[in-house]
Design a protein around this nucleic acid. Structure first.
Lengths: 246, 246
DNA sequence: GCTGCGCTTTGACACAGATCAACGGAGGGC
DNA sequence: GCCCTCCGTTGATCTGTGTCAAAGCGCAGC
């Protein structure tokens, strides 16, 4: 069922070399990581792991988008994380997974067995430091998201989401988008609804509303054009000096 | 303005010795921490720090309760963290604070200047390890909270909050509550509303509702009696196998 | 080309929780 | 004692978002 893996001989040419857990490693340390890593790929829509699964493997997203999801029995679900390239899945020191992880596009992961990875954390402080930094960044992001979920209106939620994607969108050549006029939504309306604590219908209505007010233009369902990023920011309800994302 | 500080000569008799960032430290390492720590106290209601302040000091809560809050200009605010004893304030590697920090009861902090603390992180891996562990725990907690904010009803939110407090409540003698029949709310109705993404009126109404349905009893405004923890858990909408908090 | 399926949009209506307003009760100052 | 303030409760009404239902649209298979 797995898709063919991209050929990636060495870490030094890895697209997430400078943003993932290995960001601070020198060449020697990279060799150690290289020795125990392996790649795994998943097709769009595939389940990568489910809540309660044994957490034998931890991984970084190399290519694609995955989601971290939490559900309650009656079917309500909330997306609690959007995993883009360089984001980390799993946590050292925990034996079972807390969330459902799903590939929303084709995804390639750079995997490590948990035990050797934990040993490596001790041996290579650079990895531990970077892990801490990434965890704290994610914590800040999660807290911003709490503000969104608890206090923002549906329209503000959509605008904030578009801003989030715009900020994290990177050109194919690796350059960060300066002119963020055209963004590609990585997830469906349903996943957006689950991310924003809304229903799919409300998401759809807000898109229509923003389009009618000329804040955005739609080109198909997945492509959004943003004539003026400042206007969108205003709609998002965030103060302009808001936290930098990366 | 500061209240008198409790006399705490040495780390080894510190009430949060085994839960804070120093939890894994041996006696030698504790001495190093001891050398650079200092205590600071705040009265109930005092602002500890505000968003945008220079983050010169990081700290652990030793005694009392503080809140981490995020606001938008029009007055809406969302509590993004409840800081109980052993919880950590501030983050290494960041120069300004992202949130407003307020003491809701009298609070005593164990403080470190950020720079020496960052140096210490490198020198004492045990602190770094513990920091990572705590950050990941908080991340999990934040994600659970996202589920609550995004998907739970007002009644479920209140029940979940009571469960949270019950789980973290510790007897004065340090023993974790087994019989959690009586809990003390650390925050006002207003703070609860800001925590749960509700209004104060809705919080009040849900308390009344739960009381009428014999899920809880109230003894004054701040004391809640829980005849049956299982019933409350059911009301909270969480599955019974839910994540352990500590 | 037609058909069927999945995703999205749109419409009508319902309802949980927000808003606005008034009241109650505890505690502190004098 | 009285008054005042702060906090919480209760009531009436409003509204944003959810729910239920149907229709539009693009795409794969035949």
């Amino acid at each position: 069922m797995n898709k063919p893996m991209p050929v990636m001989e060495s870490c030094s040419s890895c697209p997430i070399r400078h943003r993932a857990v290995c960001a601070r490693c020198d060449e020697d340390e990279l060799v150690q990581l290289n020795d125990i890593k392996f790649y795994k790929s998943y097709g769009a829509g595939q389940t990568i792991a489910m809540r309660g699964d044994a957490l034998d493997v931890v991984a970084s997203v190399v290519v694609g988008t995955a989601t971290l999801e939490r559900a309650i029995e009656d079917g309500r679900t909330q997306l609690v994380g959007l995993l883009l390239p360089s984001d980390f899945i799993g946590r050292p020191g925990r034996k079972t997974l807390q969330y459902d992880v799903t590939a929303v596009t084709d995804v390639t992961l750079c995997c490590f067995y948990r035990k050797p990875f934990e040993d490596l954390l001790i041996r290579i402080p650079h990895v531990q430091e970077r892990m801490l930094e990434m965890a704290l960044d994610e914590l800040d992001a999660a807290r911003d998201w709490m503000l969104l979920l608890g206090r923002k209106t549906a329209r503000e939620k959509i605008a904030s989401f578009l801003m989030l994607i715009a900020k994290r969108t990177v050109h194919p050549d690796g350059r960060v988008l300066g002119d963020t006029s055209r963004i590609e939504l990585p997830i469906s309306r349903e996943a957006m609804a689950n991310f924003l604590g809304l229903t799919i219908e409300t998401v759809s209505r807000q898109f229509t509303g923003l389009r009618k007010d000329d804040v955005i233009e739609l080109d198909g369902n997945r492509t959004v054009l943003i004539p003026d990023l400042e206007t969108l920011l205003l709609e998002s309800g965030d103060d302009s000096d808001g936290g930098v994302l990366f």
